[in-house]
Amino acid sequence: MKPNRVGRCLLFLLCSIFLFSCKTSDDANAAAKQLATTSADLVNYYGTLSKIAAADIALSELQKNLLHVPFEKEDRTQMSTLSSELQKRANVAQALQGLSTAFSNLTGSTAPTDVSNAASKLGTELQTLNALPQLKGAPIPLPTLIGDAAGAIVTLIRNHEERKAAPAMDKTVSALKELFTKEEKAYDSLNNSYDDVAKALAQYCIDKNLLDETSVLGPALQPFGLKAHISSTTDTTLLKKAATTQLQETLNSLNDAHHSASVAMLQGITDMGTRIHQLATEGHMPSRGTPITLTTVENWITTASTYLSGSPTSTGSAAASTSSQPTKK
């Protein structure tokens, strides 16, 4: 081999951050970007659930004022604790998003520091995480498993062993999938109970003439720019019946939307786990584009944001709409 060709090969190896083939580096970069997008939706998913838990406090205050249901400090603390635990999970997802983003941008001399800092942040967030479900008999506490995996990533990056980071991220995503799987039923229940309590209070408002029933006439009047009018002699019985029907139909729709979102979020995490596992074990990952199931998650987040104050808005819709088909060579 001629000296200039040897020099070029050595230069290539020195410049290759991952010490992979060029194709494998592209796959690792793509995996990290996809994980960042999936994590972004997970941040918003948990953030929305946290808002729902906080909104339960507002509903309880309404019950106290309208129905004289006691709402003590103990009850408020119970709901606040739930909201905080869900926000911690959002913080974990955000740290994972930051790590994934920094990892995908691993180019240049300053990037390793960014990745190291992001990995450290993930480890810190995980240390503050209390398990939402206290799983009796579980052989390994899930947050510990996630923390150990993230700690491995931090160590590997600091020791410039990025090539081993994919297996460590494989473990992290697997642990995250297991956590979500264990808690998914609690997420569904939290959403459904919130919707049910809100509906009950809304029905009370209908029964006590506390709302404008003419809103149910919107679909008929709005296309023509017309407004409803109720006089003192108007019989609102049928309007109240229509409002009650609307409550039930909307309740069913809201519950179905969240269930679909939680299933889709878990599927998105599972898909990412499969891809990263493939990268970690086979050294390649042909899929491009984020899991398409994330669109369902984003739709639910967007809908929930219309009735939850300060809800996060979806930021991954563009990436989620991209096809997940492997790129052609």
Binding site: H68, P70, Q78, L82, P133, K182, E183, K185, A186
Partner: peptide
């Protein structure tokens, strides 16, 4: 009324206690 509210609040606390700590 007092008894009804006591039981309703207890039911709510039971539920949120469970959802905070799920179990097998």
């Amino acid at each position: 009324m007092s008894n009804l509210m006591t039981q309703y609040v207890a039911s709510r606390r039971n539920y949120f206690n469970c959802i905070n700590q799920m179990f097998h």
